[in-house]
Design a protein around this nucleic acid. Structure first.
Lengths: 129, 129
DNA sequence: GTACGTGCAAATGATTTGCGTTAAG
DNA sequence: CTTAACGCAAATCATTTGCACGTAC
């Protein structure tokens, strides 16, 4: 893993990182706080904020903003999201095909140097149908 | 235009709506407030918030959240966004081809009833290159 | 005339910051 | 030992709400 040199692995930081790595539900700041607090009862929310920013900057986790809410995920590879407008659940949608198609299409826009792309799908999940 | 019956067209509401209809830069709440204040100097920010929500609910404008910031746009048709990571500029990218491709692809996910889709492109614009 | 909208100030909620203390390397 | 991280409380910033007054229809 690159960028991991010189990181102080405090208990708090490790628990936050592990929590996100074990969670594919795209937890919010509060989700992370509540989850980590079960092990580290004295952790403060400021520490959670600080570490989520830190880990994101280090590229160890990724931040996604969905409908104005910050969420965090361990999946660092290019992918897409399917979002249920009823229950708010979010699942990853891996499709290199879609990523490639999007990037190919955007090449026509010569004014831009595009670096990444992602597609959001909004609809209703199985449970909510 | 549907849904426009029974709307009280106050000065404030009309100016806010016109401001967004004339602006294709995806203004934030503050951008709208500053812009409309030039004509209606006594308008309050609460009124701007209330009307942006109101107009969005009525389907007269659309809200997009980009990197955690709420923005508003007059473009009601399905489209995509190109975002410069340097200057933050956002431009619309019309591509029925991409929308259709995305929707076709997602049909394989039988668990979901997808209603809409949109793609964000991140990169560097001409000026910032 | 009535219901809805407005402006203002206060309330709420999310996130950041300052600072004295603690712990990783 | 030294520097970065922690916990806590206060500060900041975005957004919402309560209410007395104003205005569209």
């Amino acid at each position: 893993m690159t960028g991991t040199e010189g990181i102080k692995y405090t208990n708090q930081r490790v628990e936050i990182l592990n929590f996100i790595r074990d969670n594919f539900t795209h937890p919010t700041v509060d989700d992370v706080y509540e989850g980590v607090k079960k092990k580290l009862t004295r952790i403060s929310k400021a520490t959670v904020y600080q570490n989520l920013k830190f880990l994101t900057n280090k590229g160890l986790i990724q931040e996604v903003n969905i409908k104005g809410v910050s969420r965090f995920e361990p999946n660092l590879t290019p992918h897409h999201h399917i979002i249920c407008r009823n229950c708010g659940s979010i699942v990853d949608f891996e499709s290199k095909e879609l990523t490639d198609f999007s990037l190919e299409l955007i090449k026509k826009m010569k004014e831009y140097k595009i670096e990444s792309t992602n597609t959001n799908f909004f609809g209703v999940c199985d449970k909510c149908k």
